[in-house]
C-alpha cells in the first residue's frame, strides 16, 4: 500500500485515501521522511480528510511523522481532520501536540508557505 507523495515546486503533498494497517502507517512514515530528503523539499502537507478513524496508533504515527519532518529541517502541516475524529481523539485523551493542523488542504499549503518563510527569515 504505497501512498503517493506529489511534488510541487519545493513542497510535497500527500493525501491518505485508504485505511492504513499499522504496517502501512509505519511504511508511510518512512516514505514521507525519505521523500522529503530525496526531493530536498521545504515542507510537506499531509491530508487526512479521508480518514474516518484515527486511533491512538495512527495519531502517534502522525504526531511522530510531523515532528520527524521538522527535525530534518523542514516543515509539516496536517490538513483536514474530520470533526468526529477530533472529537474522538480529545475524548480519548490523545492530542497531536506541537503539530500544525489546518481545516483543509488549501489552508494547509498556505500555512506551510508561511512556516517556510518564517524559518527562512529566522
Amino acid at each position: 500500500m504505497k501512498i503517493p507523495i506529489l511534488k510541487q515546486g519545493d513542497i510535497l503533498m500527500t493525501s491518505i485515501q485508504v485505511e492504513l494497517s499499522d504496517q502501512d502507517a509505519l511504511d508511510f512514515q518512512n516514505d514521507v521522511l525519505e521523500e522529503v530528503l530525496r526531493a530536498e523539499a521545504s515542507g510537506i502537507v499531509i491530508d487526512i480528510t479521508a480518514l474516518d478513524v484515527v486511533d491512538s496508533f495512527m495519531a502517534r504515527i502522525l504526531n511522530d511523522t510531523a515532528n520527524m519532518v521538522r527535525m530534518l529541517g523542514t516543515e509539516c502541516v496536517i490538513a483536514g481532520m474530520r470533526p468526529a475524529v477530533a472529537l474522538t481523539l480529545v475524548e480519548m485523551g490523545r492530542k497531536l501536540i506541537g503539530v500544525e493542523m489546518t481545516l483543509n488542504l488549501e489552508q494547509g499549503i498556505d500555512r506551510l508557505r508561511k512556516l517556510i518563510e518564517e524559518r527562512g527569515a529566522s
Partner: peptide, 17 residues
Amino acid sequence: TLADQTRIATSVSELTR
C-alpha cells in the same frame, strides 16, 4: 450519529490491536 460511529469504531480499533 457520526460521532458515535467514530467512537465505537475507534474503540474497536484499540481493543483489537
